[in-house]
Amino acid sequence: MIGTLAFIRLRETVAHRAEFLLWLMTLTMPLVMLVFWHAVMADGAFGGYDAAAITAYFLAVVVAYLLTDCDAVWNVNEDIRTGTLSFWLLKPAHPFINYTACTLGEMPARLLISLPILSAALAQAPLADDLWVRLIAIFAALAMGLAINQALHILIGSVGFWAKRSLMLHRFYAVTSSVLSGAMFPLSFLPRGLQDIAAVLPFRFIIALPVELITGRHGGGDVWRLLALQVGTCVLLNFFAWFVWRRGVRRYEAYG
C-alpha cells in the first residue's frame, strides 16, 4: 500500500517538476548563511570553525533539509478543513500511511539532488570513522530525522481538529526550529543556556545531528549514543502524535 501510494506521489512530482524546482529555490537560506559566516570568518576561525569547515557544515545542512523535510502538516490541515479525511477514515489503511507515502514519494528526486552535495560535504570534512560505518550512521540519522519531523507535522496538523487552522502554529514551529535545529548556524555558536535548551528539544535531531555526523564532529561511541537518543525521541514523538490524532479523530467523528 505504501509503495503504491509513494509511486503515485513520485509520478505527481515528476509531472509537476516545475513546482518541485520552485520548492528547491526555497533552499537558498543555507547558502545565504554560508556567505554570511564566510564574511564573519574573513579574519580567522570562529567558534571552532574555519572557512572550509563552515562550508562543509552548510552543504550538510542543505542535504539534511532535502532529506528530512515533509509537507504532512499541510496535508493533515487540508484533509480536516475540506472533509477529505472522512474518505481516508473509510479506507482499511490508516491515514498515516497516506501521509507517509506522500513524503516517501518525493525521496527519489530529493536523493538525486542531495547525493552530489553530500559527496562534496564529505570531501571537506575529516574522516573520524570508517567511511561505510559513517555513511550508515548518517543515513540512519537522516531517516530518524525525517520520522521525527513527520511526527511533529502530524502533531501540529492534528491541532486542526480543535482549531480552524493549525498553520499558524506551524509557522512558529518553523521559526523556532530554524534557530534551535542548527539550520542557521552550528548549535555550538549559541550561548551555553540556549545550548542546554536545544539539547533537550527534538529539533536538533532533525538537522544538527545528521549535519554533525556528515561533518565528522562525532566519532566512536558518541555516534551510537546520539543515535539511540534520536531513536528514543522518534518513538516518543510518534506515539504522542498518534495519541493526539486518535483524540482528534474521535472529536471529528462525533461532530461530523
Rank of each mutant, 00 (worst) to 15 (best):
A121D: 01
A60I: 10
L59M: 13
Y173M: 03
V231K: 04
A151Y: 06
G221R: 14
F96H: 15
A125G: 08
D129Y: 08
R171L: 10
R17F: 14
R246I: 05
L236M: 04
L31Q: 10
I2S: 07
R204M: 02
G232W: 04
V76M: 13
Y173V: 04
L135S: 02
C234F: 10
S177K: 11
L22Y: 11
T55M: 03
A147D: 05
L27N: 13
W132C: 00
A52F: 04
L24I: 10
I54M: 08
R251L: 13
I148L: 15
A109K: 00
M29Y: 11
I8F: 04
A120M: 14
G182Y: 06
Y49H: 03
P191R: 00
L10R: 06
T4C: 05
A15H: 02
I154S: 11
L67T: 05
R9I: 02
N238S: 15
L236C: 02
G3M: 07
F240Y: 13
R165G: 14
A137D: 06
P108Y: 06
G3F: 13
A56L: 09
F205W: 14
L127W: 00
T13P: 00
F7I: 10
T26N: 05
W74Q: 14
L227A: 05
L236D: 00
F240E: 05
G83C: 07
A18Y: 12
N75M: 14
D129M: 14
H16L: 07
